[in-house]
Design a protein around this nucleic acid. Structure first.
Length: 357
DNA sequence: TATCCACCGGAATTTATGGAAG
DNA sequence: CTTCCATAAATTCCGGTGGATA
């Protein structure tokens, strides 16, 4: 049933980028000056999560770099500091700088090293609160910025003045795909990733419609449908497999998010999940109660309350836990009970004290 | 309704880690 | 090997806030 899982991976680059011709042109036009050795125009790409912003930027830049020897680098900005962003760009144009090089020196050598035009893709730039990195990159002649975020207007209000000036009128909005368009995108994935003929075009359209044009969700759903069909010993994907695929696809996306986080997050997640819904004070207490045993034999040590709250905020950002209420009435609950930590976390002590209460 | 109080989260400060220079 | 320096992570500090109490 499933011939090649990697086809459904986030990192998989399709040979052809379907239904994004206008967007590709727009980006290519902005970067056209680089063909003459000049700095390209900046571009701000906005769109809902999963509609293909990163794929568009990577695909287009990889083509331009092949055809015109254009240099580019892709920087994941989520949670990155000013220095780490500069450091990463610097690493792309030369040897990796030492970890204790001062920020000022990094900026100086970046200016020295960038001779030819360089395109920097700032991905997940929504939460660059530390706008110094933008200023620093804008200082360097030759660097053009491709900024990827969810909401351009919102992003621009937080950006430094000179950046908003540079990006004025340079916003590219990626809309969700139409049903037929997304079905077109799913088709080659089915061809490559699944055995021949196991899924019908009509079913791809069902998926495309259900996921409301969100490509990533659609791709995961296709894999989920095939997985269910395989588990149920079906020879081809049936409509009932498609119907059951969506919750599974969502679960996988959340599970991947949780897996990417640290043990601290996992322990807090497990406590919230176990409780169903829990207020801050009780959660902190239970954390303390299990901390000694849970962290035993691990390299990390238990966190103070403030740090626990920061981890919980992260879990919220990753759509794993929801935080209800604002201050004293804050309560936490996991969003999908079927997502669970891969760590073997023993909460028996908490359960005992919970029964005693 | 006024006051109290404990949680929340921003900001400042400290600690842990690791590479480079002396 | 020791000292120095820079960053990231964690902690401490503290004002804001809104439910609780009288």
């Amino acid at each position: 049933m499933i011939a090649d899982r990697s086809v459904f991976d986030d990192k998989y680059a399709p040979q052809r980028l379907l239904h994004r011709d206008a967007a590709v042109d727009r980006l290519a036009t902005a970067l056209a000056p680089t063909k003459r050795g000049q700095q390209g125009d900046d571009l701000l790409i906005e769109g809902s999560p999963g509609v293909g912003k990163t794929v568009l930027a990577r695909h287009t830049l990889s083509q331009l770099s092949e055809r015109h020897d254009l240099d580019y680098t892709h920087v994941e900005c989520m949670g990155a500091s000013t220095a780490s962003i500069i450091r990463e760009v610097l690493a792309a144009v030369g040897p990796k700088p030492a970890t204790n090089t001062p920020l000022e020196d990094l900026c100086l050598s970046l200016r020295e090293r960038v001779e030819d035009p360089l395109v920097v893709i700032l991905d997940e730039a929504s939460d660059i609160h530390d706008t110094k990195a933008l200023d620093r990159l804008a200082d360097v002649t030759g660097i053009s910025l491709v900024v990827i975020c969810y909401d351009a207007a919102e992003w621009l209000t937080h950006a430094p003045r000179r950046i908003t000036h540079r990006l004025h009128g340079q916003t590219l909005t990626l809309d969700r795909y139409g049903t037929d368009e997304l079905a077109d995108i799913l088709e080659p994935r089915a061809e490559k990733g699944l055995d021949h003929g196991v899924v019908a075009r009509r079913q791809l359209e069902m998926i495309a419609d259900e996921v409301a044009g969100i490509a990533r969700f659609g791709i995961y759903s296709l894999l989920a449908a095939a997985t269910l069909a395989q588990d149920r010993d079906h020879h081809t994907v049936r409509d009932e497999d498609v119907a059951g695929a969506y919750p599974l696809a969502r679960e996988w996306m959340r599970q991947a998010a949780l897996d990417s986080l640290s043990f601290h997050h996992h322990l807090l997640y497990a406590l919230v999940r176990d409780a169903g819904e829990i207020d801050g004070e009780t959660l902190h207490d239970r954390y303390d109660a299990v901390a000694d045993r849970a962290y035993d034999g691990r390299s990390r040590t238990p966190l103070a309350e403030r740090s626990q709250r920061r981890k919980l905020r992260k879990l919220d950002e990753y759509d794993l836990v929801e935080r209800l209420g604002s201050t004293r009435d804050r309560r936490y609950a996991v969003i999908d009970q079927s997502v669970r930590s891969g760590y073997d976390i023993d909460l028996s002590r908490v359960l005992q004290s919970g029964l005693q209460d």
